[in-house]
Every structure is written in structure tokens, then in C-alpha cells.
Write a protein that binds this DNA or RNA. Structure first.
Lengths: 143, 143
DNA sequence: CTGCTTGCAAAGGCTTTGCAGAACA
DNA sequence: TGTTCTGCAAAGCCTTTGCAAGCAG
């Protein structure tokens, strides 16, 4: 992983432009929250973080914006929990630990895990991403 | 992968007993559908398949049963799409291809991909599962 | 009888949508 | 002035839950 945190407002805007995203005020606010530190947040959390001081963005816009960011490759969608999607600002290749007891999601360096070359893909398809998730549970809490 | 398909009614019941699941009529019906062939089905699909001829099982029971099966290790939950959970009867180690264009999920032999030993896990946790998903998209249908 | 299962319908949580008003070029 | 965004509220979808009736041992 080799992303930098936090990103300044100007850096965020620059990054958005690079990805072809029109840096409107709301989008910049949302992006700044995402790129303040490495983290894994749900749409609801983003909504809360952005509006912590005063209402800045609506729920609909948060959802639309996160979807746009993911589609444009500004952030990565991580799907490990059927009840919500996590958004990960770190786009450099890496994997995840998911604690099924706590719902916590943690980054794992890409080179912590040896991954051979990809097998032949189904015909007519090309690889878009490789997601590796190691599900862990607390040692104490057994069964 | 080394599971056998399809499983007879008796084999299904036997398997359920091994996993500590009381083989009630509805559960056996559901399990038979799941173990009829290697596949990846959502709860709704299971509901439709089981009740194809006549109403046999309710929606609530399908959800409860699939949850129970997953918890007992009879089937594997595959989470690749935030809108629904897939249930996979193949429990032998393997990975998946997920076609984001079609929503199709395909099995991939475990040994198609070299996976080194696990990195050190977060403190106080033990590995429960390693999920590898290769997201692919159709070559033609591009952006 | 006693406990485990089932089913219906209602509730719940997360996400998307329709559409009108606002912002921006 | 035309296009792109935003926001509110309503709708949608999948899943869970409460609770009474059913079934098995």
C-alpha cells in the first residue's frame, strides 16, 4: 500500500479531476472525509462524518457520490458483509482481514500473501479485480 | 473440488446428521435442491426451486434454514453482491469468479491459484476462512 | 407433554429512484 | 440557458422478527 493520508483539499480535487469526476462542493467534502486516513466506512458513516458539524450533504447525494467514486476508481468497494458496503480509500493493491465477530475490516499488505498468477478466466471475460478476504474470529469467543 | 452431485435423499439426510442438523422435511427438501448440482443460488431462487410444483416451504423457513446450513457448515455463504447472498453447496476449498456484468458466479479450483501461507493474523484472532474472488467483466461490453 | 419447527405478516435496514429546485458553465 | 447536481421523500429489495399453530419424540 502506498497511498498518502491525509490528502489536502487541493490534492483531493486534483485526484478527482484525474479520475474524471467533477469536483463539486459536496463531492469534495465527501472525498476529504474518505481520504483523511486509511479506513473502511459505510455510506451511513460517511453521511454522519460529513455532517458532523452542520448539514452539508444529503443521504441521497452520499449514496450517489460513493457509487460514482467507486465506478470511477477513486475508492474501492469492499463487500464482506451482506448488510452494507464498505468504501476503502486505499486503491493500491491490498487485501483485507474481516473480523466476523466485531465487523471490523482491516487492511493487509498485498505482499503479505503470495498470490500466483491468475488462472485462465472464463471465456470472453477479463479480470477487473482480485479480492482476497481472510475472515477471522476472536480466539476467545469460540464455537 | 471433490463434492459429489447430485446427492440422494438418504445422502442428504446423512450429511445433515453429520453436521448436527435435525433433518426435518422442509430442511431435507431445501438441502436436496442445493445438492442437486454444483451451483450458486440466492435465498429467493431456493424458494422458487423448492416450491416449483407446489408450496412446500415458506420464505421465512428458507431464510432460517439457509442460515442454519451456513452456520453448521453444510453450505458456504458467498458474499460478492451487496444485494443478495449466494449459497454454495460445495464446501471443499475453492475460489470464485464473479462476472460483474451478468451477476454470474463460477467455481474455480483451489489449486488454480497459488496461495502462499497466511500472513500473521490480527492479534487475538484465528482464521475462519479465506475467500478469493476474481471479479471479471465481459470483454466486449466495455465502458 | 415439551421442545423444536414452521409460516404468515409485519417490521427493519440499506439503497435506489423520481422529480423539482439549485448550482454551475 | 442548458446541463449537471442536489435533496427530499417515497419506494424497493432482501432479510429478519414476533408470535401462534403444527409437529415430533
Amino acid at each position: 500500500m502506498m497511498n498518502k493520508y491525509p490528502l489536502s483539499r487541493a490534492e483531493v480535487i486534483d485526484l478527482m479531476r484525474q479520475k474524471g469526476i467533477n469536483p463539486t462542493q459536496q463531492r469534495v467534502e465527501i472525498a476529504q472525509v474518505l481520504f483523511s486516513e486509511p479506513q473502511h466506512v459505510s455510506a451511513d458513516q460517511v453521511l454522519a462524518m460529513v455532517n458532523r458539524k452542520r448539514p452539508i450533504v444529503s443521504k441521497a447525494t452520499v449514496y450517489n457520490t460513493l457509487g460514482l467514486f467507486a465506478q470511477k476508481g477513486l475508492v474501492r468497494e469492499v463487500i464482506v458483509d451482506p448488510t452494507k458496503v464498505f468504501y476503502d480509500p486505499t486503491t493500491a493493491p491490498h487485501h483485507h482481514f474481516y473480523n466476523v465477530d466485531t465487523g471490523e475490516l482491516m487492511d493487509m499488505d498485498a505482499d503479505s500473501l503470495t498470490l500466483g498468477e491468475l488462472p485462465s478466466l472464463p471465456e470472453g471475460t477479463e479480470a477487473e479485480a482480485v479480492d482476497v478476504v481472510i475472515r477471522v474470529r476472536n480466539t476467545a469467543a469460540s464455537c
